[in-house]
Amino acid sequence: MWSPADILSLPFADWVNSLVRDWLVPNFRPFFRSMQWPITQVLNGLSAFLNATPMLVFTSALALIAWRTAGRGVALFTLVALSFIDVIGLWPETMTTLAMVVTAVLFCVVIGIPLGIAAARSDIFRAVMRPLLDIMQTIPSFVYLVPIVMLFGVGVVPGIIATIIFALPPIIRLTDLGIRNVRKDLTEAATAFGATPWQMLVEVQFPLALRTVMAGLNQTLMLALSMVVIAALIGAGGLGLTVFTGLGRLDVGNATAGGVGIVLLAIILDRISQAMGEKRTVRGPSLLETIRSLFSLRAARPSEEAERAG
């Protein structure tokens, strides 16, 4: 049977090779290397902070946040899950993973929200953006691990860059969607009172899109967590590395332990970030409020009940 390959064969792989090896890497390597700098700074700071924080302090702080945002059940779960991670001996790995994930999500927010806003504002920008986002979401992450290693080298930061690429689309898409779905009569009212485009964004569009943006943030967070094992392939540490080495040595126990750690972390972060998106006004409890509620926990109960009864 005849096929086009009989008369024509394109050396596509060679083209990509020469593009990356002979042009991108020699010419742009310093540029890409310098892009790592802000990520390194944030990661190092966060990692140092999380690893220096005693387990009990961190656990109670996260449980408190969970309690204020998502309620008692999630707080209790947080407490139990983090204690479990500690007793199976994966605390440092979990903190490393958390630092990586939070860093990746932070950069996704910083890059994604402005891009989402721009996409909501301009149909042309959106049309350009869409196929790019489709590619980022569908291309298997193993495919871009190789060029990332060639451009950025091996280590935690290239792992985070791969994570950012993988986790970025939802927050862009949902910021765009959220702003476009703001009721037309509200934006019309804002225009009718003489709002500038910036005032419109800050006063009306973004606050009303916040729920959808938070849903995007939640998705981004989940995608970032799902990348930690793959990022371990190129030298990122943490729970991903535990799973990866377990895999390499056919050590089912360690691989499972790492996997369970990732799942527990994912559930905690998912519940908290979802609850934040659902609130009417996303307002984290201030430190003072948190401390006050901590100490008035016992004292407040009876009076609350009395109020409800009265």
């Binding site: 009569d185 509200l186 019309e188 009212a189 225009t191 009718a192 003489g194 500038t196 606050p207 006004t281």
Partner: peptide, 21 residues
């Protein structure tokens, strides 16, 4: 146009168009 909207002309809408947040 913005100045006219700010200083001279205000509008009331059929479905109120109040900002829910």
């Amino acid at each position: 146009l913005r100045n006219i909207r700010r200083e001279k002309v205000a509008m009331v809408f059929q479905h109120f168009a109040l900002f829910p947040h």
